[in-house]
């Protein structure tokens, strides 16, 4: 489904601030894989997401989705295949537009946009059904401006907008990190439900070790621009946070440091 072959990315090449963001990364996701990604600050997790989604171009290597090489395509052209939820709850929605208008824009993800009416009665009915599944009452507030919603509500909406058109790849970039624990837990639960129900191929960056172990069928750990550990479904079932931390220290030679790290 998703293939990354020998992908490298440098920041500020040739200057004193040169930094290796990704070094020869190879990652292959099978259809329906739900992979969690953990790593220390600056390990390259966000760069990995940005390269897949097209925000950044790799310096070397190729990215393929469904066999199609997409490395040369700008971000807006890749949206056909990729749904994405950002860390910042403000990033995934348009605050001065209504919930139904936001959903209508997401509904046309990757298609051409013409002069047909964005929010029709039939679409509104389907939006309401989708929102009901979130279970947080947004279905009764279709015409409310998204800017009036709380961070958790906005993130739930972003998640729905990114997924309800069945993207081939779903990218979740620490999408619960900016929320308080109760709301983060709710979004995590909704995420798990949606990904399972729709069998979405998903890559989720998280700083929550317990979450990384509990969710998904595969776990990768990154350090200094490389994937240093790849845990499969079998091993993941019996893995503990302590084991994971120990393993990280053993391979990388230093402690896992992430200023927002949550052990679970």
């Amino acid at each position: 489904m998703l293939e990354m072959n020998h992908v490298s990315k440098l920041f500020n090449p040739g200057t004193v601030d040169e930094k290796i963001a990704l070094m020869d990364v190879n990652l292959h996701l099978k259809p329906g894989d739900f992979v969690t990604v953990i790593g220390s600050n600056g390990a390259g997790k966000s760069t990995l997401m940005n390269i897949i989604s097209g925000v950044m171009k790799p310096d070397a290597g190729e990215v393929r989705i469904d066999g199609t090489s997409i490395g040369h395509l700008p971000e807006f052209r890749r949206s056909r295949w990729i749904g994405r939820v950002f860390q910042d709850p403000m990033a995934g929605t348009a605050p001065h537009m209504t919930i139904e208008e936001n959903l209508a824009m997401a509904h046309r993800r990757g298609q051409s946009r013409g002069l047909s009416i964005g929010v029709t009665a039939s679409k509104r009915a389907s939006f309401r059904k989708h929102l009901e599944r979130l279970g947080i009452g947004l279905e009764d507030r279709l015409r409310a401006k998204v800017g009036m919603l709380s961070g958790g509500e906005r993130q739930a909406l972003s998640l729905l907008m990114a997924t309800f058109t069945q993207p081939q790849i779903l990218l979740l970039d620490e999408h619960t990190a900016a929320l308080d624990p109760a709301r983060a837990e709710l979004i995590t639960r909704i995420t798990d439900e949606i990904v399972r129900d729709m069998k979405l191929t998903t890559l989720m960056v998280t700083h929550n070790m317990e979450q990384a172990i509990r969710l998904g069928n595969r776990l990768i750990m990154m350090d200094k621009g490389r994937i240093i550990l790849d845990v499969d479904e079998e091993r993941k079932k019996s893995l503990t946070v302590e084991q994971l931390l120990g393993e990280f220290e053993q391979i990388s030679g230093h402690k896992l440091s992430d200023d927002r790290l949550v052990l679970g």
């Binding site: 990033a91 537009m97 208008e101 209508a104």
Partner: peptide, 28 residues
Amino acid sequence: AFFRTDLGLALRATGDNKRMIRSFGANT
């Protein structure tokens, strides 16, 4: 009427949240 069409919505979102509408495939 135009600002209620798909294209019009994308135009409004361009001023409201460029990053978001780009991630949904509009050429801002």
